[in-house]
Amino acid sequence: MNITTKVNGKEIAREIDDRTMLSTFLREELSLTGTHIGCDTSGCGACTVLLNGKAVKSCTVLAARVDGEEVTTIEGMSNGSLHPLQEGFKEEHGLQCGFCTPGMIMTAADLLSRNSNPSEQEIRESLEGNFCRCTGYHNIVKAVQYAADKMNG
């Protein structure tokens, strides 16, 4: 089938196998390998991207679903300068191996778009669909707080 979608602000038209998952489409078709696949069953959140501004797990969204829609991946988060979340993860040591990081940043971006000043508990609850095995989440929470503070000026 043919799909037309906007990824990181760019119009994309492609012919795809009907069963192609969004994660595979991004990684294989568009070489946007910042979106990672950790489980293929929505369990780990490493593949999280924004679909029309809302966080979705791209390993369980069909690429066909984004026909006519807008997708943002980690590669679309910085335009010249780092997004406050990217900056926060670096400043607060919110990443170690980096594999879960793109998914964490996209999930947190969704949170901050809904709640500009989340409490620690709200941050923790909003990230509960994303596994990190390296950091114990301690510094990830701080990274999101850093970004919220920065975005609130």
């Binding site: 988060m77 990443l95 990081t101």
Partner: peptide
């Protein structure tokens, strides 16, 4: 601050897959 972070936070890490 970690020098390796930039590639990971911008989706430019290079993992085997």
């Amino acid at each position: 601050k970690r020098v390796e972070d930039k590639r990971f936070i911008t989706g430019k890490g290079n993992y085997t897959d």
